[in-house]
Computed example of a mutant assay.
Amino acid sequence: MDLHRLNDPWFTVESIDETTFAISEYGHWEQVHSFLLIGEDRAALIDTGLGIGNIRSITGQLTNLPVDVLTTHVHTDHIGSHGQFERIYVHEADRDWLVHGIQGLSLEQIRRDIGRDITRKVPEGFDPAAYTPYQGEPAGLLSDGDLFDLGGGRIITVYHTPGHSPGHLCFGDDSRGFLFTGDLLYDTTPVYAFYPSTSPAGLVRSLARIAQIDGVRKVYGSHNTLGLDPEILREAGRAAQYLQEQELDHFGTGIHRFKGFSVQF
């Protein structure tokens, strides 16, 4: 696939390897990444972005296989195009948000966030004032330790990593050493757990957990820099220990900065 032929004005598609693609929305202030993982029998799309552009048109050019959506968590910038796909999977703890709406976020706030600080021309027909987040039943629920088989030996491991949301998930692509960390770990801007629906202590425990995953060669967060060195996992482990020992893992303690990332409680 010649990625230059995609020529999409909204999405930037970058090849991680021959069967793994980042689909990024750099024209929005959140700089969201979704990820397409292609096996022999099926493909997995980790999140569907903001819902500003037609991400299905991108995945359809990259693979002819059936595409299952694996949801890191149910926030607007990760479920925006869920309605374009038939098979959506989510953790049980976030299912209610997917079906009935995201807890603690008004529609007015969502529309303000989706429409601000946009630096690229948006697709024709996009209107922030009319934006409505996806709601619907998932095809299935994911649990910690589940294995999602794409065929050809490409098996995705599911890690339940609550904190940013109750049902937040990370996904390990063990055959390639990729760890997709959603909104649990990324660089540049703070990882946050300061909303009432978040859990600072849960996020810290989740950081400690992913720091113990072996064999990771590259970390892919859902925002900002695409592809982080695995050293950030070791730093996440040190950060978690510090935050717990100093009893900083609760609301109102502010922004805590570490080597390569920060968290805000």
Rank of each mutant, 00 (worst) to 15 (best):
V74I: 12
Q246G: 01
F148I: 12
R87M: 02
V263G: 06
L141E: 04
F85Y: 12
H33G: 14
A211D: 09
D2F: 08
L243N: 09
P9G: 08
T188V: 11
R234N: 08
F180E: 02
G163Y: 12
D146K: 09
R95S: 04
F258V: 04
R111I: 02
F180Y: 15
H75F: 13
Q135W: 00
E14N: 01
F171P: 11
A239N: 03
I102Q: 13
G172Y: 03
T189R: 06
H256G: 07
E124R: 14
D249G: 06
D183V: 04
I232G: 01
L45K: 06
G39C: 08
Q241G: 00
G136P: 11
H4P: 00
I255G: 00
E86N: 13
A129S: 15
G60A: 09
H73C: 14
Y159H: 15
W29Q: 13
G39H: 08
Q241W: 00
I155H: 03
F171S: 08
E30Y: 00
D113N: 14
E231L: 10
G53E: 01
D146V: 06
V99W: 07
G215Y: 08
E18M: 02
V216I: 15
Y195L: 14
R56A: 11
T76H: 11
V32Y: 05
G136F: 08
C170W: 04
T48Q: 15
G151R: 13
G237E: 03
E30I: 01
S143C: 07
E92L: 05
P166G: 03
S175H: 13
T188H: 07
F85R: 05
H223Y: 03
